[in-house]
Design a protein around this nucleic acid. Structure first.
Lengths: 134, 134
DNA sequence: GACTTATTGCAACTGATTTGCAATAATATC
DNA sequence: GATATTATTGCAAATCAGTTGCAATAAGTC
């Protein structure tokens, strides 16, 4: 998978083993830094969590990854694949995060009409009790 | 303003000078704990930030105040007045937070239809550049 | 006014994230 | 391919928001 190598080098970043590893650990469901470190450790890959933080920052800048801040004050990162914009259902009991696709173009349109604010991104999270915990 | 005194006592909480002070410092635009402490200090009121944290927690439980977690990992608190549910426009440049009222009942309805998730609350934030910073 | 117990404020702790810095490794240069 | 340049890594230490333990204090109760 040299897709990531090209993307990095085009922007003047170096392509390193660690960046490849972090990239491979990413999924389209949100993960914390600790979870990413743990999943790499499971594959016998030792990597410093500081490196993971910095790598994810780099990926976010490149637009490869989205970072979402959750209520419990930890951030989660997920792979951004084209046209996968979605929202989150966060369970107050078990803390699980489900993805839900929702067409929010109506809201965006309304914000642009109502204000001078130049919207670049948005986040929509629902909090409550998941099906499993009810 | 003994409104707050009654609300507290009805639920078995005590009405204290500090709770009154924190309540008076609250506005309908979101503030951090540090900002609340500073605004009280400006009025020559000395209060421990731990007390402010605990007081706000209490107010959130009573439904008087809403707590919103922002991207920069700090929480902001704002006064909940009946029927003021709204969303936020967060400027990436200056960090300012504007309120915007938006009818999102369509989205809520769709979530309830699409999933078994029991929605209790939600937060919708738009990020970008505010009119002032453009 | 005395009693009971919630509340306060301080200090110390936690857990996520950041920073400084020397060692290392990726690219550019010869 | 060897060498120079500079981004990246990993460790330790620092930071920062928020939490916890506990003794002193003050609200509401009798």
């Amino acid at each position: 998978m040299e897709e990531i190598a090209k993307t990095l080098q085009q922007k003047g970043y170096r392509f390193t083993k660690q960046r490849q590893q972090v990239f491979d650990a990413l999924t389209s469901s949100p993960q914390t830094v600790e979870e990413i470190v743990a999943s790499l450790r499971n594959k016998d890959i030792s990597i410093d969590k500081v490196t993971v933080y910095r790598t994810l920052d780099c990926f976010v800048n490149l637009g490869l990854v989205s970072k979402t801040q959750f209520k419990d004050k930890t951030a989660k990162y997920e792979l951004l694949v084209a046209a996968n914009h979605h929202h989150h259902l966060v369970c107050d009991k078990c803390g699980s995060v489900e993805d839900i696709p929702l067409d929010d173009s109506i809201l965006l349109k309304r914000v642009r009409k109502q204000t001078d604010f130049q919207v670049k991104s948005h986040s929509l999270e629902f909090f409550g009790i998941c099906a499993h915990c009810q």
